[in-house]
Simulated assay, not measured.
Amino acid sequence: MVKSKAIKKQSESVAAAAFVGPAFVLLIAFLLVPMIYTVYFSVFRYQIMRPNDITFINIENYVKLFKDPDFWHAFRNTLYFTIVVVPVQSALALALALLVASKTRGVAFFRTMYFAPQLTSMVVISILWTILYNSNPSTGLINSLLTSLGMESINFLSNPRTAMNSIIFMSAWQGAGYQMMIFIAGLQAIPSSHYEAASVDGANSFQKLIYITLPGLKSTIKYVIMITMIQAMKLFTQPYVMTKGGPQNATKTLVYYIYTEGFQEGNFGYACSAAAVFFVIVVTMSLVMKRLTTAKE
């Protein structure tokens, strides 16, 4: 009996290793090793077009990075995008989830349609919205609608004051579908008996939202905010496709800055130092967000 239990335990360990092993190997190969090499190359002067010409320069790349006004400008753009898009996208996703969770006719079709952007490449969506934002009313659908209403056309992507906000609007629309599905799962986990008891006590819909739904979604809200913040910090595709970081660097983010320095300018070592600092910023913001949400409990 003891022997059979030992054999069973051993077979379970082998099965667990077989399932976890490949993921663990991929994690090391595509996450841990690149991180180590990023930190390693960050202390070298390394031109990507001259791989044999590599010189150890200690922390010179970091000193240059912190003195570079373009880096701080990209950091401010990234921070602005994150601060605005996270609450907007999360609130929109929650509102959509509440709408879909209601027993309204046609919500299944609505849920499918609003989740559809998640199944489409961000490059394709960025190209479509670039056309929608076109300042020419004969080409841009949004400006065509504005001019038909007697309003002036807006240079959504060519004006530094509106370019980032236009990307924020598009990003919130595209990403809310994924968070909506997470909120729907959270809503389904709330016992229906809570709502029934509230109805017996005479609570209205708003009171149910404040005292039952939102407290029941506390963990879900924390998770959605965390993943949305991390995704927002990694903003790259939309500025790259829609504005190329312009106009006047108004949409140049930290990831776009790293890409420019590493693959356009060829300063691979300098780009690695920027990537290392970016990693520290994301981890720090994640820890601060976790601490804030935990403290509120």
Rank of each mutant, 00 (worst) to 15 (best):
S42L: 04
S42R: 02
S42I: 04
V43G: 15
F44C: 01
F44D: 00
F44H: 08
Y46Q: 08
Y46P: 05
Y46I: 06
Q47P: 11
Q47W: 14
R50P: 07
R50S: 12
T55Q: 13
F56V: 10
I57F: 08
N58A: 12
N58L: 07
E60C: 04
Y62V: 07
Y62R: 01
V63D: 07
K64S: 14
L65S: 08
L65F: 10
F66K: 14
F66T: 05
K67V: 10
D68E: 03
D68R: 06
D70W: 08
D70G: 12
W72C: 05
W72P: 03
W72E: 07
W72S: 07
H73W: 13
H73T: 15
A74S: 10
A74P: 01
N77T: 08
N77A: 11
N77F: 11
N77P: 04
T78D: 04
L79K: 04
L79W: 12
Y80C: 13
F81I: 13
F81E: 02
F81R: 05
F81N: 00
T82D: 02
I83E: 02
V85Q: 02
P87I: 09
V88E: 05
Q89A: 11
Q89F: 04
Q89S: 13
S90R: 10
S90Y: 01
A91C: 12
A93Q: 06
A93S: 12
A93K: 01
L94P: 01
L94Q: 03
A95W: 01
L98I: 13
L99R: 06
V100H: 04
S102C: 12
T104M: 12
T104N: 13
T104S: 14
R105S: 12
R105Y: 11
G106N: 12
V107W: 06
V107P: 09
A108M: 09
F110N: 00
F110L: 08
F110R: 09
F110M: 08
M113Y: 11
Y114T: 11
Y114C: 09
F115H: 03
F115P: 06
F115K: 11
F115T: 04
A116D: 01
A116I: 14
Q118C: 04
Q118N: 15
T120G: 03
T120M: 13
S121Y: 09
M122E: 07
M122P: 03
M122L: 15
V123Y: 07
V123C: 02
V124T: 14
V124Q: 05
V124K: 10
I125H: 00
I125R: 08
S126A: 15
S126P: 01
S126W: 02
I127N: 06
I127M: 06
L128V: 14
W129Y: 00
T130W: 12
I131H: 10
L132E: 05
L132R: 00
L132G: 01
Y133V: 00
N134A: 09
S135Q: 14
S135I: 06
S135C: 13
N136L: 06
N136S: 15
N136C: 09
P137V: 11
P137N: 04
P137K: 12
S138D: 11
T139E: 02
T139Q: 09
T139G: 08
T139W: 13
G140R: 01
G140F: 05
L141A: 14
L141E: 07
L141T: 12
I142W: 06
I142L: 11
N143A: 12
N143R: 02
S144M: 10
L145E: 09
L145I: 15
L146Y: 01
T147H: 10
T147M: 13
T147Y: 02
T147P: 00
S148V: 15
S148R: 14
L149T: 11
